[in-house]
């Protein structure tokens, strides 16, 4: 089999998921790893929307909020299995993205940024204010997914941390596989074409509005699933999952690592997830450092960390 970039990315991700536990100093790192994978899923959606199609969203945490609260509310109110609640959340996110995306995606640049920001804030506001349903800012508990018990019945006994680590790792790789498939497919090419030049994409027959909408819906589903996995893993969720800062984190992770490539964006997710965990001593400096990193990377390494590093290595190799 020929070593395509797609295959290489998937192999690297699989190797990292499987080998990293050998380096873990404590079981706590399974949890950190799982968080990285959960963020990576959301960020892969941003790669499709921003990296491929060139459209910005500052409100994608709203969809993560829908995914998360679907897992908390649907089992309690409708008696749905939590796994089905993930699908339900994704479906609601997709529907909302489809409905709102139609008008919103006509906007460009800053206007699109602010419109999506507004959408995210509205969702987070509802989660905060509809106390009868969501119990407001204090958060709500989420039922057990139940898959770990099922695996145990089949003889695969994992700790809670291990289970979520491998399960989220698998979901991340699956998400990366879909995004990489899309990259070199006709639809992916159309997205990248309209990113490059909207007017030229139109003249080769690309239905720009339709393609942008598809990218928006797909990335909303990614964010939603990411939110669901976060909620199920923590067994508890607060409206912060849908907050403005979470939206900004998603975009920053993607852009930091390199929004044009799935591997780059996941790299960015890993760094920004690890940073506060490793620097817990510097908790006070967290915002200062985050803000500084955002500015420095955008000024000096505009393509993002991974593409810039690869370019330097390639030059050295020549």
């Amino acid at each position: 089999m020929k070593m395509t970039p797609k295959l290489a990315t998937l192999l690297i991700l699989a190797a990292l998921v499987l080998l990293a536990p050998f380096l873990f100093p404590s079981n706590f790192y399974y949890r950190v790893g799982a968080l990285i994978f959960v963020n990576s899923i959301a960020v892969t959606g941003i790669v499709i929307l921003t990296g491929y199609a060139g459209q910005i969203s500052l409100g994608h945490a709203g969809f993560a909020g829908i995914g998360a609260y679907a897992c908390a509310l649907a089992p309690a109110h409708f008696g749905i299995h939590p796994a089905l609640a993930v699908v339900l959340g994704a479906a609601i996110s997709a529907l909302l993205a489809w409905l709102v995306g139609r008008p919103i995606l006509r906007l460009k640049g800053y206007y699109l940024g602010v419109a999506t920001l507004g959408l995210g804030i509205l969702i987070s506001m509802m989660l905060n204010n509809e106390r009868q349903l969501t119990r407001g800012p204090d958060g709500i508990e989420v039922p057990e997914l139940g898959l770990r018990a099922l695996l145990k019945g089949w003889g695969l006994d994992l700790t809670n941390g291990q289970f979520w680590y491998y399960f989220c790792g698998l979901c991340m790789i699956l998400g990366a596989w879909l995004a990489l498939n899309l990259h070199n497919s006709p639809s992916g090419r159309a997205l990248r074409a309209l990113h490059g030049s909207e007017v030229a994409a139109r003249t080769v027959g690309v239905d720009v509005a339709r393609m942008k909408l598809q990218a928006f819906v797909i990335s909303a589903v990614y964010a939603s699933v990411s939110g669901s996995l976060l909620a199920l893993q923590n067994k508890f969720i607060t409206p912060d999952v849908a907050g403005f800062m979470h939206s900004i984190e998603m975009v920053t992770m993607a852009v930091l690592g390199g929004v044009g490539s799935v591997l780059g964006a996941i790299f960015g997710a890993a760094i920004l997830t690890l940073l506060p965990q490793v620097l817990t001593v510097f908790a006070e400096y967290e915002q200062l450092v985050l803000g500084l990193v955002m500015m420095l990377v955008m000024i000096f390494l505009r393509e993002g960390l991974l593409p810039s590093i690869l370019r330097k290595l390639r030059r050295k190799g020549e």
Partner: peptide
């Protein structure tokens, strides 16, 4: 890829088929 983009009308299909 630029040249392939020109074939959009012939190559386009369902986005689900492309994802999978």
């Amino acid at each position: 890829e630029n040249a392939i983009s020109g074939f959009h009308l012939q190559e386009r299909g369902s986005v689900l088929a492309d994802l999978l």
